[in-house]
Design a binder for these strands. Structure first.
Length: 484
RNA sequence: GACCCCAUCGUCUAGCCCGGUCUAGGACACUGGCCUUUCACGCCGGCAACGCGGGUUCAAAUCCCGCUGGGGUCACCA
């Protein structure tokens, strides 16, 4: 109880910076600041297939934009460096061995094929899903021999077979789960890298994290984590599972139904302090119940224990209202500075200017011509609207195509450049049978609201991924509402 | 399906722990009006909720149980 407060945000760099990361980071940051502790940034890049440096950079940039300053992290070091899990693999292996030696974990030689078959079988029989613990029965000497021979294997947690595990959550009290319900989780993958469960527990302990504040989706693996602390002989931290941000239909927030990239909010002209304030409202209420408050006031009043548990629906409308209040509070000079840091940044203007320059006659033409580059969303010009649907295909088919293009080809792009956009459109056309002649005008209208614009690839690259995403999604909705 | 979490206005929530002060408060949205050349802002007002059923109690939004509903998880992803 007397140990210093240390909290952390531990994002996985596998995509665009997520609003849920900001949400969890905010409460971790606030608790550390409130109690004079430290807030740590740790990168959980143990998924070799999906982790990228580009994603990590974007996440750091997004957290900086929100001004959630961390005291220790991969970019600035600290007493428990390194803070990137891919640089700590020896530590995890050593700890996994320790568990194996103590009998709390064991090598498993089962192939993926066998595991897949097992799962299919269990599913068909409507039985409980999970590993059948076949390799747990192996004699330690036999297992050691096969490992020494270089046979491919993973290390699994040997969960107690009976009894139950009680875990404490700060907000929910004691959560008790029968051990028979808990799977023998893989701790070390066959590539030698740890899974989340091992790496997370080991690092939280070694980095002396006092409060693990994370999303509700982790509750079901809590018993595994508690068991790991126990097996290592470590004192567990305080666990606190935050409610999940929700879509309007109350499912877990997702990019199909909501903008989830922090980059979207920046591109849409949301002020970082307004976004943070709004996020704080999701589960937290100021003692005087006011909706607008500075981060200083938030930190001063913050109590982790009084977070409410209902899954809050993320409401863009209320965020917009709050942002408006913040915007109106700015002095004109400050507003100007914000504009120059955002839509009117020199760097951005310089990328769109070459596209605009050859198409205007006077300086005065710039704003009307380039308006769609600066706006959050576009309105369709009257003569452009009918051309949102491809003539030979119709609105429904066009909607479907745009959606496929978006989800299958555009979404995966991490580094949004002209070449990447061109490649995505090309691959979509090859896969779908659409050609440029029929596809490009609908896209042009969807993205700009007009029929006459600079070249499509360059325009899309300049607009940025999030503006394109948002506008294409809206176009899909408009198309669906159109009569064939 | 199994396990776990959750449950106050359409949405975010206060109240619940320590039952009466709750004819349930605030905010967004919607709506009526005022201000105003217009719009926006701002101001005043309105609409709107304790999921259901049992207990406990003189008294339940508040405590207990059940049901229903919603959500999450069930990967060599996090």
């Amino acid at each position: 109880m007397s140990r210093p407060v240390r909290t952390r945000i531990a994002p996985s760099p596998t995509g665009d910076p997520h609003v849920g990361t900001a949400y969890v980071a905010l409460f971790n940051w606030a608790l550390a600041r409130r109690l004079g502790g430290s807030f740590i940034l740790r990168i959980e890049d143990t998924d070799r297939q999906r982790s990228t440096g580009a994603s990590e950079r974007m996440i750091l940039e997004a957290l900086r934009w929100l001004d959630l300053q961390w005291d220790e992290g991969p970019d600035r070091g600290g007493p428990f460096a390194p803070y990137r899990q891919s640089e700590r693999t020896a530590i995890y292996r050593e700890h996994a061995e320790r568990l194996v030696a103590g009998g709390a974990a064991y090598p498993c030689f089962c192939s993926r094929e066998r595991l897949d078959a097992l799962r299919a079988e269990q599913k068909a029989a409507k039985a409980q899903l999970g590993y059948d613990r076949r390799c747990r029965a192996l004699a330690p000497a036999e297992a050691a021999r096969r490992r020494a021979a270089g046979e491919e294997h993973v290390i699994r947690l040997a969960m107690p077979v009976d009894g139950e595990t009680a875990s404490d959550d700060l907000l929910r009290g004691t959560i008790t789960v029968a051990n028979s319900q808990v799977d023998d989780q893989v701790l070390l993958k066959s590539d030698g890298l740890p899974t989340y469960h091992l790496a997370n527990v080991v690092d939280d302990h070694l980095m002396e994290i006092s409060h693990v504040i994370r999303a509700e989706e982790w509750i079901s693996s809590l018993p595994k984590h508690v068991r790991l602390y126990e097996a290592f002989g470590w004192e567990p931290p305080v666990f606190c599972h935050l409610p999940l941000l929700r879509n309007a239909d109350r499912s877990k927030i997702s990019k199909r139904k909501n903008p989830v990239s922090l980059e979207h909010y920046r591109a849409a002209g949301i002020l970082p302090e307004a976004l943070l304030n709004y996020l704080a409202l999701m589960g937290w209420t100021m003692p005087d119940e006011r909706d607008q408050f500075s981060r200083e006031d938030f930190v001063a009043a913050f109590r982790l224990e009084s977070i409410s548990l209902g899954g809050p629906v993320f409401d863009l409308e209320k965020l917009g209202w709050l942002n408006g209040k913040y915007l109106r509070d700015l002095r004109p000079e400050e507003l100007l500075a914000r504009l120059r840091g955002g839509p009117l940044a020199d760097s951005y203007l310089l990328t769109i200017l070459p596209l605009v320059q050859e198409r205007i006659e006077t300086l005065a033409d710039f704003v009307p011509y380039a308006g769609f580059f600066l706006a959050g969303e576009v309105s369709y010009e009257a003569q452009a609207l009918p051309r949102l649907a491809a003539p030979g295909r119709g609105p429904a088919a066009t909607a479907k195509a745009v959606q496929e293009l978006l989800e299958g080809h555009l979404d995966p792009i991490l580094e949004w450049q002209v070449a990447a956009v061109e490649q995505a459109l090309t691959s979509f056309m090859e896969a779908s049978g659409w050609n440029a002649k029929e596809l490009f005008m609908p896209l042009r209208v969807a993205l700009t609201g007009r029929t006459a614009t600079p070249p499509l690839y360059e325009t899309m690259a300049a607009l940025g991924k999030e503006r394109c995403r948002w506008r294409l999604r809206r176009a899909v909705e408009v198309l669906r509402a159109m009569k064939a």
